[in-house]
Design a protein around this nucleic acid. Structure first.
Lengths: 183, 183
DNA sequence: ACGGGTTGGTTCGTTCATCGAACCAAGGAA
DNA sequence: TTCCTTGGTTCGATGAACGAACCAACCCGT
């Protein structure tokens, strides 16, 4: 990991996990992948991350088998990054972190997660369980809705596309980019 | 957060959480606090963290209300750091991260977590639930046992003290330190 | 009273990741 | 032929992490 010293001596699976997903920006990339973001430029616009850092993070996440890079169009060649099974298994981490942040840091509800299948209006618990059904909801069956704390007028097309209710993992379709969206 | 740019623009509770616990070493400090580590020198010995970094992390965790610093002895004055309620609420994050790390990174079981009260030999799920009782176990009712992947001969007294089965949060009592333990 | 040990730090020079702006290249589209 | 889009790489400046040394308050044994 960063800065010459790794967590290898920790003899602990938490340290091992942080070796892989503990670097700056990494978990936000994973979060965006759950939201349906797949393309280099969409990550760039949505996160405001430096280009070089984005490139290396996508590389290491791919190398660790959390994202898979694939060409979704031959001409012109275009790449996308999607969550693998190991990446999908990070959902409880992302969900519990978000809920903790809302309850102890931001104190405002930005996004609401619900079980799409049963139609309840209760939101998921800290590990992604539906309080109505009592089951742990598969990630693809989660709907994400804007919460009251979410900025209704974001300045970038990715955030705008994420305002509408949508299933997690559903590929994000952005408006045609304009020059102003390049960072 | 670190490096001049914060996550403030992210408009997301996950980003807010990472502002607070996303820096290098921070979640390992929190993990150790769950294990019962409370003292500056024990964190230092167990983590092998630079002293200056440890001091600033303890400060920011205290400032954010995740740890509480208190004097447990007047003469000579001695301090300890214990988890607050907000800190305890991080348990699902720590637990799910550890389980993910074991299943997708380290691939070996270092520590086993069980429900102490019901006496089951099944271990807790990703958010700290007991598969036997079906309830989410209060952190103080979790026993931690060494797993097969754990180094049986660690080189520092804190790791040695953590070899024995113990309740989470139970204050760690280390052997009297020797000069060699100073880093 | 003095030296040595324990605890909980601070200081400081070196190393290295992040930042941000500029540049680049392959391939359409006008 | 020139511009635009996508997905990057390069590079200098900034600032955090590292690690070794130093420091201060307090205790104990002699």
């Amino acid at each position: 990991m960063a800065l010459g010293k790794d967590y290898a001596t920790q003899d602990c699976s938490i340290a091992g996990a942080l070796e892989v997903v503990g670097e700056r920006w990494t978990l936000l990339l994973v979060r965006d992948a759950f939201y349906g973001v797949r393309r280099y430029n969409d990550f760039l616009v949505h996160l405001g991350i430096p280009r070089a850092v984005l490139a290396t993070r996508l590389q290491t996440l791919t190398a660790h088998g959390i994202l898979e890079k694939r060409r979704y169009q031959q001409s012109p060649p275009r790449e996308e990054y999607v969550l693998t099974e190991a990446g999908l298994a990070l959902w409880p981490v992302v969900r519990s972190l978000g809920l903790w942040g809302r309850q102890h840091v931001t104190l405002s509800q930005r996004r609401i997660m619900r079980h799409a299948v049963c139609g309840t209006d209760q939101e998921l618990g800290p590990y992604g369980e539906c309080p109505a059904c009592g089951i742990v909801v598969p990630v693809g069956d989660v709907v994400m809705l804007p919460g009251p704390g979410l900025d209704p007028n974001p300045d970038n097309p990715v955030s705008r596309a994420l305002l509408a209710p949508r299933r997690l993992l559903e590929p994000l379709i952005t408006e045609p980019a304009t020059a102003g969206d390049r960072v």
